[in-house]
Design a binder for these strands. Sequence first.
RNA 1: GUCCCCUUCGUCUAGAGGCCUAGGACACCUGGUUUUCAUCCAGGCAACAGGGGUUCGAAACCCCUAGGGGACGCCA
Length: 498
Amino acid sequence: MQKVRTRIAPSPTGDPHVGTAYIALFNRCFAKQNEGEFILRIEDTDQARSTAKSEQDIFAALRWLGVDWSEGPDVGGPFGPYRQSQRSSLYQEQIEVLLDSGHAFHCFCTAQRLTDLRNQQMADKTTPGYDGHCLHLSKEEIAQKLADEQEYVIRMQVPAEGECRFEDMLRGEIAINWQQIDMQVLMKSDGLPTYHFANVVDDHFMEISHVIRGEEWINSTPKHLLLYQYFGWQAPVFCHMPLLRNPDKSKLSKRKNPTSINYYRDMGYLPEAVVNYLGMMGWTMPDGRELFTIDEMTDNFDLMRVSLGGPVFDVEKLDWLNGKYIRERLSDTQFMQLFAQWAFDEQKMAQIIPLLKDRVERFSDVVPLAGFFLSGLPEISAESFVHKQLNEEQMRKILQFTLWQLENGTDLSRDAVEQECVRLAAYCGFKIRDFLFPLFVAITGKAVSTSVIDAISIIGIDVSRARIRAAIGILGGISKKETKTLEKDFRDFAQSAE
RNA sequence: GUCCCCUUCGUCUAGAGGCCUAGGACACCUGGUUUUCAUCCAGGCAACAGGGGUUCGAAACCCCUAGGGGACGCCA
């Protein structure tokens, strides 16, 4: 029997996501349970959005949770490199194979033509997709266009009719009509492969036996299967997991729920509790135990026990579980050490101390002044926001604009945050001191405190976001209508900056 | 809009045709322990989406409807 090899293939384009950890956890349990390997591959074919920092954060976050891998960009392995940006020559070679066999073709269509086409199809209420415009270009025409250095992509051929049937480990047979499948771009005009292409090529050469991934991929599985067929390769077994959900059942998103693993770390959750919680999303121990370690999960794992309804990520239950871990699984000494590690992180303290030194007369002043650095959400109410110049609506706007601006920028240094706040204040027509007031209350819990700009920079985007959002809620929340107005206004601001 | 997936308490789930007057956990409520609170303990509330079949028997199998979600990018 073929050796079981599974993988997690995150793209390093943002915060380490709990959904990534969730899928990684199940892949790892399945592989280990079958005495196979679990590998990590970085899918960084999106040049514009991939960052080294994000990649590092993903490594750190998964390691923090104890979801480790036996092959990957950082640890190496026999099937490397494990970063797609370093495998370009392989994709070039493989695309030639498809070009030669006629399963792929050059497409010189402009972005504008494709946009018009899509709009037209939408208006006609037909399935949007490529119309095959470049399909019938002759060899000479193609050679001429290439010689002229016209921009092009390479697309895959797709059967015009019939349907693709495949077996999903959990869902049984799934049938999708080929007419639903677009002539997917395989190689982008920047010469890099798209996910669909790189993923199939890599899974093959890395000898991945089981692809366990989110259910969002079901509809593109036919494309992948078709590629395996074109290449004459054995396709892996597919298994589509349910998606983690927001409380309103939509796909988990940071607008509605904290999704960054860093948030849970920064809020003082234990990694054992977080990973345990993820393990009970769609899965239960055979004996019904709710508290289990990742090793216990691995030992008792059975992929077939996964239930398919999309589980709502319920922070309240996670809180309970985390409390249980703290109470039952931590000795006093461990508690002391872990808490100290969490609270007195040296890098963090080095930033905080200078802010405090000028303002304290005794050490006993420190906690009242700086306690907000360690608390989750400050204890504030509507009264905390009473202000002479600003009403609630204005404060909601300030908070929301600041949040959007913080999320836009990648730079959360104190100077960058300050600059953004000054610009926003000017745009909104507020004095900076008035502008900062709601931020002081939201972030530090008080109108008077150490620099709120430094605080945001130190606390980080994840916890800052949670606090700002909580504050907006206390201020009455933002209605759908208000959101629209604000979004428009914010776009104007963003444009004015350019 | 088209296609695909899903559907047991508010939430996470048990349930592989009779063991189901549907079990556990979170949340919530009540009571007990505790100088307060929390913990802990005891109890309570609360669900098979609807309709048709199949079957001696259906939460489980099939079909239809409804609801939810996802996909439809030179993002992954």
